[in-house]
Structures are given as structure tokens and as C-alpha cells.
Simulated assay, not measured.
Amino acid sequence: MNQPESDSAQDMPRMIAVSSGKGGVGKSTVTANVAVALAETGLRVGVVDADVYGPSIPGMLGLPPGQKPSQLPSGKVVPAEAHGVKVISMAMLTEDDKPAILRGPMVTKYLQMFVRQVDWGPLDLMLLDLPPGTGDIQLTLAQAFPLDGAVVVSTPQDVSLKIARRGLRMMEQVNVPILGVVENMSGFTCPSCGSVTHIFHQGGGEAIAHDLGVPFLGKVPLDPGIVDSGDDGIPLAKAAPTSPAGIAYRQIAATLAGSAGSQAGIATPFAWTLTEETGRPAPAPKTPGAPGDRLAALDQAAGGLRLTWANGEAQTLAPRDLRLACRCASCRDEVSGDRLLDPDNVPLDIAITRIWSVGNYALGMAFSDGHDTGIYTFKSLRAMQDAEMEDV
């Protein structure tokens, strides 16, 4: 079980994931251009190229191929920098034509290193350029780091929009706010006559944002200059800031710069050792009308663990009930859901020894019997039938 390190919420910059349901929609191009546009507003910006199998950010930002990052005496890696943006990528750790052949645990290790073992210095904003899909990398980042939100990139093409919808739903399930949808490759303007041809239909990104109740960040038109500038290592947002695409990138950047993470709920990440009373998270203010799936406070109570939610509701859960409710692979059959844990083997006086945040959507817990591999989603905690909810 990956438990959080000693980072405090105050040490972490705002983290925004840029994702897509499928490949080929220009997600990395959007990330590179928006990052440069953000940096030109005066923000301190970093980019984690989290697509470890197909890294492309360094090339788009004009970093020399094969440039290896240096290492400080502390062991931390020094990120590269281009156009005012700090960058770390698998492309900087491997040869240009050498594939990254990695299993899931190694991918997780690299992602943790890219965020925690890099000497980023003070940052205002960190963009994480995700690979397409809804797999290990997306889940690892959602579990390990307190993402302020996600931006979903799609083309107006019907198949792309359908897959983008799945990516949106995945982020919602792990309590990552959707900051908006970007419709990329939205029409081609003829440079000679000015007529617009909608190669992949039109308006699909705006429609899906409206259907799902999330912001629409804008349309980025097709422009040959985007490809040329990316190949030259000077993103269009800098090379041609007044072009239609350049203006679109800057408008998206301005929106993201102003979308400060103001989620109701407790600050993450945290790791609270109950036996020593260290690392207890500071309570967040209760907000009437706030979503009930945001945790506002954790306390020890006579009946067990006291959870107070952002909307003011509270519940107390007994340690033994929580231990029996564990749904990890050693306690529940992954296919049938049947309980594998024998209740007779769980002591009546079992205690919780440690609690830590899992992204924005769950808690990890360690118990006095040594068990520490369960993830308790906020949804499952609220749904425990033997916990009486009350307003406080």
C-alpha cells in the first residue's frame, strides 16, 4: 500500500491533470501551449510528462534530445526548463529511440519520483500531461496526489467525444473536479479565403460539457503552424500568440489561472498517526450546501472514528466495523465480492493506528492487527449502514 510521504498540503503546488479518453487528440500539444501561456502571465509553472510510454513534451518545448537531468547532493533531480516552464519527462531519462518497457509498479515509482524527487522549487501550478485512457497512471495520480482538477481534451469527432465522456466519469469517481473540456482541432480556417471547414464536425465538445454540467474552456482550431511550431520547439502560444489558435490557448490558460482549487473539505495530503497524535489534519470549515462527499474533519471519539463532512453531517464508525468493511483483495473476493476475512479473527478491541489521505476521494487505514492495505472511499464510508448520520 502506497502511504503518503511527509509532504504537507502547503508544500504542494496546485496540480491540474490534462487528460484524454483516446490518443491522437492533441492533448500534449494543448498542455505544452497552455503551460507556456501560463508562464507568460508570471506564474511559476511545472509540467510532469506523465505519459511514460510516449513522452513528447520535451520535444515540443525545444529541449535537446537526450539531455539528462542533473542530480543534487540531496538526491533530488533538477528539472529542465524551457520558455519559463520547468519540465520532467521519461524522455529525459532514456535514449531517444529506446522504448520504456515498464510494468505497473515501476510506472508508479517513476510518477512518484517525478513529483516528489524533483527539485521543482517554488511553483504556483503543476500540469500533469497524462497518457490517454483510464488506466494505472490516471488512478495512481488520483490516489497519490491531491489533484485540484482535470482538463479533458477531445476532438469534435463523435467517437472521441464518447471516449472523453468515460474519462470525465473516471475523474468524477475519484473526486477530481473537472475544470473543463477543450475541443481541439475545431475547424480549419483556409489561410487564403478564410472559409472554415469543420473536418471533425463542430460543437461536440461544448455539447458534452453542457450535458455533463462542466465548464467548456474553448475551441482550438486546426492550424498547420501548431505542428510546425511544435516541431521547432517553440509552442504556438509563444510563436504566434495573436493567431486564432494562440488566442485560444491564452484564453484557456487565463481560465485555469483563475480556477484556484477551492474545494470544500479537509486539506490533503495528510498522514495521521493516532497512537502518537502526529499529523492530524486541520479541520476545514463546514460549508452549508457543500457536497456531502467532502471530508471536513477527523477525530477520535468514544465510539471510534468521528468523521464530519463538509455539509455539516457527522458519523462515528467503530474500528472493528471499519476493519470488517475492508474491501482489499485479501479481505474480499475481487470477482464475487464475497468476504474472505473471518470476523472471528478480528479482535473486539482492534484499534486504528494510522490514517492517511488517498487523493481527494478516500482514506487509507492501518489497524493494530497489522492490516494496512484497504482503501475506504468517502462514498463507502458514508454508506456504512450501522453509522447514524446527524447534523452538527
Rank of each mutant, 00 (worst) to 15 (best):
G304V: 07
V107S: 00
R382Q: 15
V182Y: 06
I163S: 03
A290R: 13
F378Q: 06
F145K: 08
P281D: 06
G46Y: 06
T189A: 15
N345R: 00
T140G: 02
Q71E: 02
R294K: 15
M90G: 04
L295Y: 11
G279V: 03
L93A: 12
S262F: 11
Q3F: 07
A302G: 00
P224H: 10
R327W: 04
A239I: 04
I101T: 06
A82M: 10
A254Y: 03
L139S: 09
I266E: 07
G46F: 08
E5W: 10
A271K: 11
S243M: 09
D349T: 12
A239P: 02
P4V: 14
Q67C: 01
E334P: 01
L324D: 01
G364K: 04
H83E: 05
L139F: 12
G213N: 08
A50K: 04
A257P: 09
V174C: 05
P343Y: 02
D391I: 15
R280Q: 15
G359P: 06
P288W: 14
V107T: 02
R250W: 06
L305V: 07
Y53S: 05
F216R: 08
P224Y: 09
V335G: 00
P132A: 12
V174A: 05
P191V: 13
K76F: 01
S74N: 13
F114C: 01
A257Q: 10
A37D: 12
L348M: 03
M113T: 07
A282P: 01
A301G: 13
V45Y: 12
S6N: 06
A260K: 13
N2T: 02
L93T: 05
L63H: 10
Q143Y: 06
P122I: 03
W272G: 00
T31W: 07
S6K: 05
G246F: 12
T316Y: 10
D49K: 01
P122K: 11
G21E: 02
A387N: 09
V181N: 07
H210Q: 15
P291E: 13
S259G: 05
A209M: 06
P146Y: 03
M60H: 09
T31N: 09
V18G: 10
M90R: 03
T189F: 11
I137A: 14
C193M: 14
G84F: 06
P235W: 09
G303K: 08
L341R: 14
E390S: 12
P4C: 11
K27M: 11
L61H: 03
N175L: 13
P13C: 10
G59E: 09
L161R: 00
Q251R: 15
G246W: 12
A264V: 14
A142M: 02
A240W: 04
E206Y: 00
T316R: 12
T278Y: 01
A150P: 06
L130P: 03
T197Y: 12
A362I: 04
A267V: 05
